[in-house]
Design a protein around this nucleic acid. Sequence first.
DNA 1: ATCAAACGTGAACCTAAGTTCAGGTCAAGC
DNA 2: GCTTGACCTGAACTTAGGTTCACGTTTGAT
Lengths: 146, 146
Amino acid sequence: MSAIAQELTIGEVSHRSGVPVSALRFYERRRLIGARRTSGNQRRYHRSVLRRVAFIRASQSVGIPLAKIAEVLTFLPPDAPPTREFWVRASQCWSETLNERIAIMERLRDRFTECIGCGCLSFQQCGLVNPRDVLGDQGPGAHLLT
Amino acid sequence: MSAIAQELTIGEVSHRSGVPVSALRFYERRRLIGARRTSGNQRRYHRSVLRRVAFIRASQSVGIPLAKIAEVLTFLPPDAPPTREFWVRASQCWSETLNERIAIMERLRDRFTECIGCGCLSFQQCGLVNPRDVLGDQGPGAHLLT
DNA sequence: ATCAAACGTGAACCTAAGTTCAGGTCAAGC
DNA sequence: GCTTGACCTGAACTTAGGTTCACGTTTGAT
């Protein structure tokens, strides 16, 4: 399969990471990953791309949009394993975010429970249905990040 | 503004709820809300639509997709204030979901922190980058719900 | 009776995150 | 040296959740 030791084809990266080939190409267009090309224009990946891809998927799984992930990935040296420095920076970005989201959801969960208690006679005044104090006035959708 | 007491135009609902008129019409197409029509085909809403809309937005704010919200709204009697029964049912649906999501994010946050400690020499074996045990094999995106 | 503001409709457009497809090229085992 | 599976590209399509637009009708205050 792989010719030169340590270099991976897109199929190998896909298989090892569980991420579809189409998604890998898509991430490349969005500049989240990169690869050198063979003389025949095929992609050849450095092993470290597996870590990048893993990082991307882990981040996505908590709802972080690709654009944000791309920003954080600029801390990661291309074609090299993630440094401790990278982890410190990424973690600063992510865990603040995660903590905020956790807090938002806990508040909402608790308010739901309160609403049951109160029978929601005061629905319109109730914190649950006026979550602006928590979420701000950001329009529709799940504005947990962005 | 309002002619018959308690009936609201779409503009009034929009203004009071903070939800754009276009979104209200969109929710109607998705059968999340409804309204009677005047002889001139304009929408007239029962006051209770404000509660429905508030419920929709509160639910969306924690990432619940409209389709799921629509399901839960079938418990809500049309043109009537939410009953205690409704709250019990909705809360059963939502708080299970919220608890799961909170748990997922806490695990991921903690793993991020671990990764800093470990310098991620074992990145590929690390729980963070192989979150399938947590999220299952659901493909891309934030599969926290659905 | 008039007239502007508010309302109505359908169609097109938008972002995110991809997937699918058509048509063509590369590479490696036999 | 040939063949087949893997790879390439760009374009079109998808779902969610809407927004924007063009164009026509209703309302209700004066």
